[in-house]
Simulated scan of single mutants.
Amino acid sequence: MTYELNEKVKNLIPYDPVAGDYEIRLDANESFIDPGKLFREDFLAAVAAVDFNRYPDPAATELRKKFGAFYGVDPENVVAGNGSDELITVILGAFLRPGDKLLSFSPDFSMYQFYGEVYEKTNIVAEKQEDLILTAGDVIDAVRKNRPNAVLLSNPCSPTSLVMSREDVLHIVENTSALIILDEAYMDFSDQSIMKVAEKYDNLILLKTCSKALGVAAIRLGFAVSCPKIIRALNCVRSPYNVNAITQAIGTVLFSKPEYIRKSVEEIKKSRTYLYENIKKLANSPGVRSLIKPETNFVFLELDHAEFVYNELRKNSIIVRKLGDYLRITAGTQKENDRLIQALGEILTRKI
């Protein structure tokens, strides 16, 4: 007898990030600031203190305390995860039953729909307006039309870089009984967070990642913030030792440096603005359709010939992310931004 994979997983294609040796990588929305170089000794000392023969603290107590202190939330209303991706899968797998309706929007983070399919939810995808703006009215209309069990969306949005106002998000939460899973992965670069009031709502889970503003994508660390009832349930269904001791140690050190984090965020925002303003100067170039003013650490550029521009940038050893007719370009160092801007300008002014 030969074991057959079920139809759900048989034809899946693994996530395949761009591989290759590129001089400039502006494709993954990582931070160009590496705290591992700045705080090497602190990180090494923290890792050296880990008892490698023991399981990590299952509650990530010190890490949650530091996270709570930095963001101004009660650590008792926080759960740490092996990246926010793990938390999304736990929430979808345990809080929703097979066949339950999961509402998301397009464009948004592509993995939302993928996780919905893997965990056997009924994926409902509502298309955004042509300008890509998502309003509270749009979300509430989609909820009333489709009656989902849960709504999953990012704010600010990846990949559009647009942000919904704090008031609009709270209006959504307060006007539906569906579970709202709000991914604030990029909110450090904007000012519309609702994290400090997340614990007040019994239908809201707010997600945070350390892979963007904090610059520690390598350690895979994320958090969920919610009300006590949901936090208790989340602690029941997650793996007992889901955040390893090394990640906890490094994360605790990093959150002990709040001034560094704030300065890093400002530096990234400055880089983002520089990138946006200079690409904006190319707006009248042939084939450029639109450029959105970002509230993230990247810009989102729409082109008639995105495939051509993407491939030409690759020839210049610059890699960005292509999403249909759009290029998503992460803010980099001054040198990286200047190289990208120069190459992009040259490519756009060619006769295609």
Rank of each mutant, 00 (worst) to 15 (best):
F105R: 00
R166D: 14
P148F: 03
E86L: 03
A136L: 01
P75F: 04
N77C: 11
M187P: 08
R144F: 12
N123R: 11
Q113K: 14
R97G: 10
G116T: 03
V78S: 01
V118K: 12
T160M: 04
L103E: 07
Y112L: 07
F114K: 11
E62C: 04
F70L: 03
Y71N: 03
V118L: 15
L96N: 04
V47A: 09
P56H: 06
F95Q: 01
P75Q: 09
Y55K: 13
R144C: 11
V73K: 08
L102M: 15
L96V: 02
N175R: 14
G83A: 06
D57G: 07
V50R: 12
N146R: 04
V173M: 10
R166N: 14
E184T: 13
S177N: 12
I181Q: 07
L132N: 07
F52N: 13
R147H: 13
I180F: 06
E76C: 01
R54P: 01
L152P: 00
D141M: 07
A126P: 04
N123E: 14
Y112V: 01
A60K: 03
S158R: 03
P56S: 15
L134G: 03
L102D: 08
Y115D: 08
S158V: 09
N123G: 14
Y119E: 09
F95V: 01
A126K: 14
H171E: 14
L170M: 11
S104C: 08
P159C: 00
S158K: 07
V90K: 05
V169W: 01
F105I: 02
L102G: 09
D188L: 07
P75E: 04
E76A: 13
E174S: 11
A150Q: 06
V118D: 09
P156A: 01
N123F: 14
A69T: 01
S104I: 13
V90P: 02
E130G: 12
E127P: 08
N175H: 12
N175P: 11
Y55C: 08
T160D: 10
A94K: 06
L170R: 08
D183C: 13
E174I: 06
I91N: 05
V139F: 05
K66P: 00
D100N: 13
F109T: 09
A185S: 15
I181N: 03
L96T: 07
I88E: 06
V151L: 07
I124D: 15
T176L: 09
R54C: 12
I124E: 11
R54L: 08
D188E: 15
L170I: 13
F105G: 05
Y71W: 13
D108H: 03
R54N: 12
F114L: 15
L103G: 10
S84Q: 09
A150S: 07
F114D: 11
